[in-house]
Design a protein around this nucleic acid. Structure first.
Length: 582
RNA sequence: GCACCCGUAGCUCAGCUGGAUAGAGCGCUGCCCUCCGAAGGCAGAGGCCAGGGGUUCGAAUCCCUUCGGGUGCGCCA
């Protein structure tokens, strides 16, 4: 991203240069650590356009006081033509006011870049984002939808920021739960042959398996009927898993989520990856035979001490060591996960991200421990926990029960509100905060609904651009317009908001928080609507003004820039920008 | 009992990785508008940032602790 597009980066560079100069003059000691120096918009706009804490951050290591250092730095900054004012304030802030041309420069950069406005230069670094990873035993539900939306938006955000991103789904196709799936499907298979069967307790009762039974009849005829379970189970299991995964892919597609890679647990196990990963930990002396203490205060009734194979996760910050083998010698759930993360580590990523449901919070520290051990602390792992979704309709919560099979599926959600509304609404919340999702409110067409509000801003911008086109104002004229003619402070406010986008996107990507993009868009839309409303009173703020056709291209350029920023942001979130309201 | 997450306006939530007088929407109160550039606009009231202690120039933000809510805690995945 160029400095023209991101004024904050440009001014940060300016400050850096000024500090170099002070250093050369001997006013600052050499080789100070400047990482704590920031440039950001002050909370109170009266303080200026940008503020830097440089003097406060460097005063102590430089052996001086903040205001004195600021007094040296501010005049140097003021020499630059882009700086209209640089003054020392408060405990040692330097407040900067910038020439409007700086903001309009960002607007021009936005117009030139189009949907790529703010996109980061390729970093040459690879990140793996694993999300959804639901068991292949049934359709995705609303909770999965949130994880899918969050993970996908995070992946999109990192991609936009310049990462090389792999979107990955881990298929738990090797545990006991897929045997249960197979038995459930076999009942449906018998049913397809006209037998009246009761689905045994403990199996999956959902109707979604009925078509699988019918399909199996078509493929296998009656060859799997009346045979010992040991003979049909592997066949039925594979068939059912394939069917479930294709259903899950369709569910994800309905939300607009496409994975780059599906990694099968069974395939890893078949390749001996579990043994290989455990051997690797063993070489490091991290595997041992031991007996775990029972949880204090809440000892299970049937607790008795047992010797198990344990992973020394406490060596990497976990609270207790974790079992990798059950007392009967079989692997625990953790073991294949170790193998899977070993596989990811050995694929050479610079960063791993796991998106888990909140109920997997207990696994975070052991996964971090194992990745640290397997990568010799070289590959960072960030685990994002996505909290529960509570569903409402007109303020009334409605219950769902997985046992009764009447839980709300992802497909129900998408069919009722559409992928765009589902995505944006769920991204208006931090991942680690619980989410109330109200079907009625999500579809409401009013200022109270952020999705509608942002889409409406984009539609308004497009509406005025269409009117401009009808009046003969060409795209070329808009692109070539001289924005210096926009002197009203209302235009400059909008230009500032647009100019914030590249910096905001970078921060959101850095902190792995896509919700910040959604909030920015809400904010930008608010600023745009506010300008629009002001124009009722102040004709100078109207995009199209009778009698001033010459100034129209510059004003329409502002509408286009807003639309460009909204489109770029919505693109990251996987939401389609609309150009007209219906 | 322990670990992790959370606690900010009456409600639902932001708060830019430690900055200046803590913000938005809803709700409430008061004005204005009903101009299709429509599906409202402007303004106001409302806060001990759960409580207490600490770190420092400076804390909603970091550390400790108490309280309250959520999630999880070997042979389920």
């Amino acid at each position: 991203m160029t400095e023209t597009a991101n004024p904050f980066a440009a001014i940060a560079a300016l400050i850096d240069g000024a500090l170099e100069a002070l250093e050369a003059e001997g006013a600052l000691p050499p080789e100070l650590d400047r990482r704590a120096v920031t440039v950001e918009p002050p909370r109170d706009p009266a303080h200026g356009d940008m503020a830097t804490n440089a003097a406060m951050a460097l005063a102590k290591p430089a052996g001086t006081n903040p205001r004195a250092l600021a007094g040296l730095l501010a005049p140097k900054l003021a020499e630059d033509p882009r700086i209209v004012m640089a003054e020392v304030a408060g405990p040692g802030f330097i407040n900067l006011r910038l020439a409007p041309s700086v903001w309009f420069g960002a607007v021009s950069a936005a117009l030139a870049a189009g949907p790529d406005f703010g996109r980061g230069a390729p970093k040459g670094r690879r990140v793996n984002v694993e999300y959804v990873s639901a068991n292949p035993t049934g359709p995705l539900h609303v909770g999965h939808a949130r994880g899918a939306i969050f993970g996908d938006a995070l992946a999109g955000l990192l991609e936009f920021a310049g990462w090389d991103v792999t979107r990955e789904y881990y298929i738990n196709d090797a545990g006991a739960q897929v045997d249960v799936l197979a038995r459930s499907a076999h009942f449906r298979y018998q049913e397809a042959h006209g037998r009246a069967v009761e689905i045994a307790p403990g199996l999956y009762p959902g109707d979604y398996l009925a078509p699988v039974g019918v399909a199996m009849k078509a493929v296998f005829g009656d060859t799997l009927l009346d045979r010992p379970e040991a003979e049909w189970l592997p066949v039925v299991r594979d068939f059912a898993i394939t069917a479930m995964m294709s259903m899950i892919r369709e569910d994800l597609a309905a939300l607009g989520v496409t994975m780059d890679r599906f990694q099968s647990e069974a395939a890893l196990a078949a390749e001996g990856k579990v043994e290989a990963a455990l051997a690797r930990l063993s070489e490091q002396g991290l595997i041992y035979q031991g007996v775990l203490e029972p949880p204090k205060g809440k000892t299970p009734e049937d607790w008795e001490p047992r010797e198990q194979t344990l992973f020394r996760s406490t060596a990497y910050g976990d609270d207790v060591d974790r079992p990798v083998k059950k007392s009967d010698g079989g692997w625990t759930y953790f073991a294949p996960d170790i193998a899977y993360h070993f596989d990811k580590v050995s694929r050479g990523y610079d960063l791993l991200i796991d998106v888990f449901g909140a109920d997997h919070g207990g696994y975070v520290s052991r996964m971090k421990a194992v990745v640290a051990a397997l990568s010799e602390r070289k590959t960072p792992l960030d685990v994002k926990l996505v909290q529960l979704v509570k569903l409402f309709r007109n303020g009334e919560p409605f219950k769902m029960s997985k046992r009764a099979g009447d839980f709300v599926t992802l497909r129900d959600l998408v069919e009722q509100v559409g992928p765009d509304v589902a995505r944006f609404t769920m991204l208006m919340r931090k991942n680690d905060a619980p989410l109330d999702f109200d079907f009625a409110k999500a579809l409401e067409q009013s200022k109270d609904n952020p999705v509608w509000y942002v889409q409406y801003a984009n539609a308004r911008a497009h509406s005025v651009l269409r009117s401009g086109a009808e009046a003969g104002i060409t795209e070329a004229a808009i692109m070539a317009a001289d924005l210096a003619s926009l002197t009203h402070e209302g235009w400059i406010e909008i230009a500032k908001k647009v100019a914030e986008w590249p910096r905001l996107m970078e921060m959101a990507a850095e902190s792995h928080e896509p919700h910040r993009v959604a909030f920015y868009l809400f904010d930008l839309a608010g600023a745009f609507h506010a300008l629009w409303n002001r124009a009722r009173e102040e004709e100078a703020l109207r995009f199209l003004q009778a009698g001033d056709e010459a100034g129209a291209p510059a004003r329409l350029a502002m509408a286009k820039a807003v639309s460009v920023a909204i489109s770029a942001g919505l693109g990251i979130l996987g939401v389609t920008p609309v150009t007209e309201m219906r």
